[in-house]
Every structure is written in structure tokens, then in C-alpha cells.
Design a protein around this nucleic acid. Structure first.
Lengths: 233, 233
DNA sequence: AGAAAATTCTAGTATTGATTAAAATAGGCG
DNA sequence: CGCCTATTTTAATCAATACTAGAATTTTCT
């Protein structure tokens, strides 16, 4: 891989960095040209390499896909963890998580692969990715449940509401194209606004404390209670 | 194709009906096993046919995919049209459309293909599908704009809010598996509830009366933005 | 029944693209 | 310089599967 400035890193990290570049290139190809539409040659070309060179970084195309998905899953999990520790009420935690996840997907973490080819992974890899996906969903549902308990979220079917929100999030790579602009801000604020209104209880007395639009960065939001469930993982 | 009871239909419609079965089988395969994971043989097997037989119904695999996507687009467009004519306020129209679309996706219209392989379509087919997708998005955004105008929807960036909602909808085939139960009701009511709360203005006074005195927006006549819709074929 | 049309099957072909083996290049270091 | 390792390339191989040609079978119609 050409044109790097990684001299100050040791061997192994240089290797990981390059593989990371590979993963991002692959993710972008997959999202733009579709899975069946991207050959290893395409990905390699984007890096100024030949297809065979990729096998220095991954054992197979299957592993390449797996690592792309793994990366997406890890980024999501990290956003979840951050949201959970930064927020107070269930609603606050959920919205912070969502904000972080959006930031990651649309930011420097590079394009995130949309997981449309899980079924064609190897059994072990498929199991791993599915496990992480399920855990992620459960974690989010736990946040919703926590919010319902502490009164920051209106009662609802957490499974379905979670499906709706996660769908909106997961679909982003489908239409988002990084064009430098302030688009990311727009996505985050608008999505979060919509989610907040959708989740918050209609009774303003209960919802009142939920703080206006851009409280993501502001840790000082009025909590309500802080009951209930936490998630494993 | 075996086991039919279509005696009372004429040739052409029988043909179309069978091809429709094919499309549904294909859509289910694509969604369950991924695109690259489904060979024509897989699809054929599900119908008790041999792979070569499929070529009696479609010219190529590319056309099969195209028709799957076309079908999904048409179903969406029809739901949109129904919602628009049945509803009164912008919010009402939007929610009715969403309900119809969910019903269609989770109902007898069979599984709807998730459009993850648009890029590998032929140029003409790709252009057609993209055009329909864009129109669909614009139509929905027009409904949102109409709702904002008539006061039934809180002011927001219709593009982003539309993206969020359509993402939630489009993601459904990813996790929904028809298991006979009343799950579909649950999806529809929970999704719509969430969307309604997310869209409706927080001030009930404004939301209450749909179309107040003056202003533009006789709901029956002129939508605010975006023309279009209506599908051929 | 028997001809004609519709539908499906058998038996390939051909192409694409992943994968591999081994050679070539580059960089650091004694 | 000359060795060692890391990295990339060239040139095949190999398997999967989309697709085709023509035969076989079923259905429809008179």
C-alpha cells in the first residue's frame, strides 16, 4: 500500500493501519457498488494495489466482509457504551448513543458497511456477527426499558420501537455520501429531534426536563429518576 | 410450476401470476440468504423447478432482480397513493401511507425484496429503479411539507426526517419473518405510534385543528412540494 | 384423438472472479 | 554490500454458476 506516513509506528500497528484502510475501501465499495458488483480487483484498485495483494491482509473475501461487519459492530457497541455512561435518564442515554453512532458512521471512522450479506459468511463468523447484532439490539431495548421505567420515555413495545429506530440508523449508509459539508450535523440533530419527540411522553410535565434540541454535548440535563434495568455485554 | 388453481384465468394472467410467485420466491431468498448466496438453482428449487426453467419467465438474473425491485417500488407507490387520497391532513396522509406500506410488506403481498443490489442492475433498469425511489422519497417529503403547512406536523427538515422514517420502513424486511401471528398488527401500530409522536407538534393546540383558517393548503388540492408518482407497467 | 402451444428438463458451455504459488521488489540493518 | 523480512506482482488454476440449445413433456384447443 503506497503513500503512507506511518514511520513512527511499529510493524504490527502499521499492518493494522493498512488493513483498516483496506476495510474502509471495501466498505465503501460494497455500499456504492453493491456486494456482487465489487470484485477484489475493484477494492484493490482503489488502494492502488493488485487483487492478489489483498490476500496479504485477509485470508479470503469472506474474511474481508466479516472484518467490515465486525468493525461496524464494534463502532456501534462503542457508541452504545459511551451513551450509556454519559447519559442519565434512559432517554438521555439512548439519544446520546444514537448521536455517537451517527457521528461515527458519517465521520472519520469512514464509511460503515451495511450488513446485507451476513448469510454468506462462514458459520463461525456469521454466528459472531449475529450474536453482536442481537446484543446490540437488546442493549438498546434495555435503554428504552430503562427510560420507560424512569419516566423519560413513553410506554411502548421496546422491541418494535427499537426496530424502528435501529432501522433508521442502519439505513443511513444507504443514502449518505460524505460531501464534506455540514450534512452530518444536520443528520444528527434532525434524527435525534425526531427520535426524542417519538420517544418522550406526551405529558409535558414528565417530558419537560428533557432539554431542548442540542443537549448532546451538555452533560447537565435534569434527570428524573434512574430506575431499572441495565444490559449485559 | 406445479400445484396451481388458476383455471379461470386467461393465458397471459396465468403467466403473470406464476412469474409473481417466482418474484416472491426470489425476494425471500435474497432477503434470507443474501444476494450472492442465492443461485438461480436455489430459487428454482423453492418452486419445485429446475434453474433453466426460470428463463422462461425472465431473460436473466439481472432482470429477475430488477422485477423484484420494481415490484417493491410499485407496492410502495400504491401505498403512497392510497394514503394520499384517504387522508386529510398531511400527517394523516403520511401515517396512512406508512400503515399501508407496512401492511403490504408484512402481508400477503409476500416478502418484499430489500434493494441492496441496485448498482449491479443494467443501466436502464438502474435508472428506472432510482427514478422511482427518488420519486417515492420526494412524494413522502411532500406529504411532510404539506403537514407542516397545515399545522399537523411540527416544522422540521423534511429531507432528513423523511430519510429517518423511510429507513425504518425499508429495514423491516431485514428482521421481519412471517410467523403467522399477529405480529403484523404490532409492527404497524407501534411504528405508527412512534412516527406520529415524532412528527406531531408538541403544542396540542396547533395539532388539534388540522387546517385552520387562511393559508394555502387545501389538503385536497395542492401539495407543497414535489409532483410525480403514478407507475406504468 | 391429435395438433399446436406452453412449460419444463437434460446436458452442456463459457465466463467470471476468487484463490494460489512462486517470483520480484523494497526497505532496513548488520 | 548483502541478508532478512515485509510487501506486492505475475501468471495460472479452479470452482461456481449464469446462461444456452434442443429435446421431452404437459397442457390446451378443436
Amino acid at each position: 500500500m503506497t503513500g503512507e506516513d506511518n514511520w513512527h509506528f511499529d510493524r504490527d500497528t502499521r499492518f493494522s493501519l493498512k488493513r483498516d484502510r483496506l476495510l474502509r475501501a471495501a466498505a465503501e465499495c460494497f455500499n456504492r457498488k453493491g456486494y456482487s458488483g465489487t470484485s477484489l480487483k475493484d477494492v484493490a484498485q482503489r488502494l492502488g494495489l493488485t487483487d492478489a495483494a489483498l490476500y496479504y491482509y485477509v485470508r479470503s473475501k469472506e474474511e474481508l466482509v466479516y472484518r467490515c461487519y465486525l468493525r461496524a459492530a464494534q463502532v456501534g457497541a462503542e457508541a452504545m457504551a459511551r451513551g450509556r455512561e454519559e447519559g442519565d435518564s434512559g432517554l438521555d442515554k439512548a439519544l446520546r448513543y444514537l448521536g455517537h453512532h451517527i457521528d461515527a458512521m458519517c465521520g472519520d471512522e469512514g464509511p460503515m458497511a451495511i450488513m446485507s450479506e451476513i448469510p454468506s459468511l462462514s458459520d463461525a463468523h456469521k454466528a459472531d456477527i449475529l450474536k453482536r447484532s442481537r446484543e446490540h439490539s437488546l442493549d438498546f431495548e434495555a435503554l428504552l426499558a430503562e427510560g420507560i421505567n424512569d419516566g423519560s420515555i413513553a410506554p411502548c413495545d421496546v422491541r418494535m420501537t427499537g426496530n424502528a429506530i435501529m432501522g433508521a440508523i442502519n439505513w443511513i449508509p444507504k443514502w449518505y455520501r460524505p460531501d464534506g459539508s455540514a450534512q452530518r450535523e444536520q443528520i444528527r440533530t434532525q434524527f435525534i429531534d425526531f427520535f426524542r419527540r417519538g420517544l418522550a411522553p406526551s405529558d409535558p410535565a414528565l417530558a419537560a426536563d428533557a432539554a431542548p434540541v442540542s443537549d448532546i454535548a451538555d452533560p447537565a440535563a435534569g434527570p428524573v429518576a434512574g430506575r431499572s434495568s441495565a444490559a449485559r455485554s
